[in-house]
Design a protein around this nucleic acid. Structure first.
Lengths: 197, 197
DNA sequence: TTTAATTTACCGACCAGTCGGCATAGTAAT
DNA sequence: ATTACTATGCCGACTGGTCGGTAAATTAAA
């Protein structure tokens, strides 16, 4: 589990968009961790879900850690894409970035990050896996604070992250209507920054 | 590890303040989980740290789950106490509760919740353990929102919780001075609720 | 002596990682 | 074009070890 990082990684994706066996295995791993939790995310379970043997799985991921890293990386990439998608359908202007981030994080459904929810259990079990997440978070804040005053960006940022994390932990104390009130306020704070009641 | 909830719990604390063997074992469990992480929080490790045999440990906690529940419960109690302590040394008035909560959560040191940090890994591994935490969170919000308008309470609440959780995850992107600026703003929002830059 | 507390020894399940081998496809030499 | 060789992808049995939980035996307390 130490530094087996880039030992033998068979070039498994010559063409970028192919559903290489590797990607199929990551999909399987996500299914397992979503349906059974981080504790039951075993190599055997992933292999079974991917309909390959354990040896076949470990051919592509030399260790369990390598598999987990790949999962986290893919989740981060998806997070990027979600924000970019929101940015694209938002009018340019003050607070566009902040609003896009807000919408991508806690926008209406929130169902698409069942993966993130499941991965929370994975990263808390392997704190080293947090490294890329940390970078991601830091870069995001930097970008958001370029657009609006730091204080306001930080406030919206923290509240959003708080809501997101509490919901990931299934610990949000807000009713549906309370949640809506909060979100409405956050949205207006992101673009205008007015007064607070 | 299934539903062994309240099977056989030998009445191990007749007198409430005694450093009953039970409490010593919980202390040991905390040491283990802090120093070695949730994954290495095994019954053997706790027994070793408490200087008892594994059988002795399991006499007091009929299952590992019972031990974890007790850990979580104690952490919640301590959270209550920390807030009460802050409330006591704060001038009564508008936003006292909110400010006490803020100070207790992310007040200067933050070192005393190494336990919480460690327990995060425990609860993500056993989502059922979140039940008492959920209650705790819900009750807290209700109390905070009685004092100041809901919108403002919720905003401070979420931002505080966001900062706290990100720091628990070791993922806070703020520098020390940025953190201070944010806290200063949150404090003033808790008691005054003025404008935002 | 009965009850409470604790020990020692063990079981069964689970799990990450290893290893030898198999099959297919491509390449090279004859 | 047949043969020899090699690389890739995959298989599944096995190993060494960990961990939660159990049970009988032992000691301490009431």
């Amino acid at each position: 589990m130490r530094e087996s990082q880039r030992a033998a990684m068979p070039a498994a994706r010559k063409a970028r968009g192919r559903p290489s066996a590797r990607d199929a295995m990551l999909d399987a791993a996500e299914t397992v961790v979503i349906e059974q939790g981080a504790a039951r995310l075993t190599l055997d379970a992933v292999a079974r879900a991917a309909a390959v043997s354990k040896g076949g799985l470990m051919y592509h991921f030399p260790s369990k850690d390598a598999l987990l890293q790949a999962l986290v990386t893919r989740a981060i990439e998806r997070s990027h894409q979600a924000r970019a998608a929101q940015r694209a359908r938002l009018p340019a202007g003050h607070g566009q970035e902040l609003l896009a981030y807000l919408q991508a994080s806690v926008g209406d459904p929130l169902d698409n990050d069942r993966v993130s929810r499941a991965l929370l259990g994975v990263v808390t079990g392997n704190p080293q896996l947090m490294a890329p997440v940390r970078e991601f978070y830091a870069a995001r804040l930097k970008q958001l604070a370029r657009e609006v005053p730091f204080e306001r960006a930080a406030l919206v940022y923290l509240a959003t992250e708080g809501l997101w994390l509490m919901e990931l932990l299934d610990a949000s104390p807000f009713s549906k209507s309370q949640r809506n009130r909060v979100l409405k306020q956050l949205r207006s704070l992101a673009v205008e920054g007015g007064k607070l009641p």
